[in-house]
C-alpha cells in the first residue's frame, strides 16, 4: 500500500461570484484525515457557499479541489457522495413525508445496487440487501440517539432529533468527510453538549468532520483547527486558541464572545 497523504480535502484559490458579487475569493485550506475542522465567520461571509462548492451543489469559478487524492472542479453532488463526502443542511432538508427509518435507508442508496429487476422479482439477493439496508438504518438511528419509533415521519420529530436524523442519513452513505452546516443551531446548551459528544464519537470512528458553527464554545471545545471567513476571504486559520486571540477575528466575528 502506498502511504496515503495526510490531507483529505484540499482547496486551492477557490473563487465564486454571484452576478458581479464575489462571494468567495482566493480561499485555500486543507483538511487532514481524522480531524474536526471548524469553519466560522459572520453571517453572509461565504461559509455555506464554500460548503455548497465542496459538496458539488455550486460550481466554482476559480481554483481547484482535491479530495482523497483526486482532483475535481466540476462534479455532480451524487458523484461526490460516492467519493465519500456527506453533508447536512443549515435549514434541515429531510425527506419530510418519509419515516425516520426511510430517511436513513435513502442514505444507503449509493452503497447498494438493487435495480428495477431486483425490485420486481425480489430475488434472494434483493431481499438480503433490503434487510441489510433496514438493519443498518436502525443501527444508525440508535447510534445518533433517536429513540422515538422509527416509523415516525421525519417532519414530526422534535427539532433536535431532526438534526440528528440528518446526521444519521449522512452517515449511512459511509462518508470519509462529514460536512455539517450549523448542527447545533437552535439547540440549548445541554442538547449542544450531547451533540458534541456524538461528533467526538463519529470522529473517533475515523470520519473526518467539517463543521460550520456559530457556537463559539462548541468550536473551541471540539475543533482541532479552525478557519475564519469574512467577506469571502479567509482571514485566519489555526488552532482554536490562536484563532480566538486573533485581533482580526475578534473584530470581525467574535466581539465580546472572545472572553
Amino acid at each position: 500500500m502506498t502511504p496515503r497523504s495526510d490531507t483529505l480535502l484540499e482547496l486551492t484559490g477557490i473563487g465564486k461570484h454571484f452576478g458581479g458579487l464575489a462571494a468567495l475569493s482566493d480561499v485555500s485550506l486543507h483538511i487532514r484525515h481524522g480531524e474536526i475542522y471548524g469553519l466560522i465567520g459572520p453571517n453572509g461571509a461565504g461559509k455555506t457557499t464554500l460548503f455548497n462548492i465542496i459538496t458539488g451543489l455550486y460550481q466554482l469559478d476559480e481554483g481547484a479541489i482535491t479530495f482523497d487524492g483526486t482532483a475535481y472542479s466540476h462534479c455532480k453532488p451524487h458523484l461526490l457522495a460516492h467519493a465519500g463526502i456527506a453533508r447536512t443542511f443549515q435549514n434541515i432538508r429531510l425527506f419530510a413525508n418519509m419515516t425516520a427509518l426511510e430517511n436513513v435507508m435513502v442514505g444507503r442508496h449509493l452503497r447498494t445496487r438493487t435495480g428495477i429487476w431486483g425490485a420486481l422479482l425480489r430475488n434472494a439477493a434483493a431481499r438480503a440487501e433490503e434487510r441489510a439496508i433496514a438493519r443498518r438504518a436502525r443501527e444508525l438511528l440508535h447510534y445518533v440517539g433517536i429513540e422515538r419509533p422509527h416509523q415516525t415521519l421525519a417532519k414530526h420529530l422534535p427539532y433536535g432529533e431532526q438534526r440528528r436524523l440528518e446526521i444519521a442519513r449522512a452517515l449511512a452513505t459511509e462518508p470519509k468527510l462529514l460536512a455539517l452546516d450549523e448542527p447545533v443551531a437552535g439547540m440549548n446548551a445541554t442538547e449542544t453538549e450531547s451533540l458534541k459528544a456524538l461528533l467526538q464519537t463519529i470522529r473517533a470512528s475515523g470520519i473526518t468532520v467539517l463543521l460550520i458553527e456559530h457556537d463559539v464554545k462548541l468550536i473551541l471545545g471540539l475543533c482541532d483547527r479552525v478557519a475564519v471567513l469574512d467577506y469571502g476571504k479567509k482571514i485566519a486559520e489555526g488552532l482554536p486558541e490562536e484563532v480566538r486571540q486573533n485581533p482580526a477575528v475578534i473584530a470581525a466575528y467574535l466581539g465580546g464572545a472572545a472572553e
Binding site: L57, P77, H78, V106, G107, H109, T114, G115, G118
Partner: peptide, 24 residues
C-alpha cells in the same frame, strides 16, 4: 424498494436526494 425510496426522496427534496448520492 430502493428505487421507490429514491423516487420519494426526489419528490421530497431533490437537492438533499442528490447529496445522498442519488443520481437524480
Amino acid at each position: 424498494s430502493r428505487i421507490g425510496r429514491a423516487w420519494m426522496a426526489i419528490r421530497e427534496d431533490e437537492v438533499a436526494a442528490s447529496a445522498m448520492g442519488i443520481n437524480t
